[in-house]
């Protein structure tokens, strides 16, 4: 089965059809996708700015990261689930868009960046977090995360525009 055939299968599925045809379901799912973004990318935004030293430099990184981490991860899951639903609802159209694949690539790269940060720096956060100016690669990780998630938002927002063409 090709990717396009798979997308058509999703599109024609009961779930895909009912999401697309319901007056309320689609915008509600989209609204939840947006709220999920505010909590995941929105809160991550401040962690990234902290890593760059641009936000609350007097607060330690873990003091910000620890309480926010479960919220960021939890709402990221919400964003992903609603994102999958939005995809299913118009799969056979979205699968044809380059921008959709760019978005996926940016998400994967952002994920790799976050994983690398967690494994390399997250474990011994107490060694470096109290320095006013954080290690260069920690700052890079924050900057890259900020950049990649912005690209995810931009490419995501472009999907309906290129879709309705």
């Amino acid at each position: 089965m090709t990717l396009i055939e798979f997308a058509e299968l999703l599109y024609d599925s009961e779930l895909g059809t009912s999401l697309r045809e319901s007056i309320y379901a689609y915008p509600i799912v989209e609204g939840i996708h947006l709220i999920g973004l505010a909590f995941s990318v929105g809160l991550l935004f401040f962690v990234d700015l902290r890593l760059l030293g641009l936000f609350l430099p007097n607060i330690s990184v873990s003091a910000l990261l620890h309480p926010l981490r479960p919220l960021i991860l939890g709402s990221f899951a919400v964003t992903m689930v609603t994102g999958i639903l939005l995809f299913v609802a118009s799969a056979s159209k979205i699968i044809l868009l380059d921008v959709f694949f760019y978005k996926l690539i940016f998400i994967v790269l952002a994920g790799v960046n976050a994983l690398w940060f967690e494994l390399k720096w997250g474990k011994h956060v107490d060694h470096w977090e109290f320095e006013k100016l954080l290690p260069k690669s920690v700052q890079y990780a924050g900057g890259i995360s900020l950049f990649l998630w912005s690209l995810v938002l931009i490419s995501g927002r472009l999907i309906p525009y290129l879709n309705y063409k």
Partner: peptide, 18 residues
């Protein structure tokens, strides 16, 4: 403009959430 609009919204929602 839609993009600028969503950036604006995120810039409000993120701090308000925090």
């Amino acid at each position: 403009f839609q993009l600028i609009h969503i950036v604006g919204l995120i810039l409000i929602l993120s701090p308000v959430t925090l």
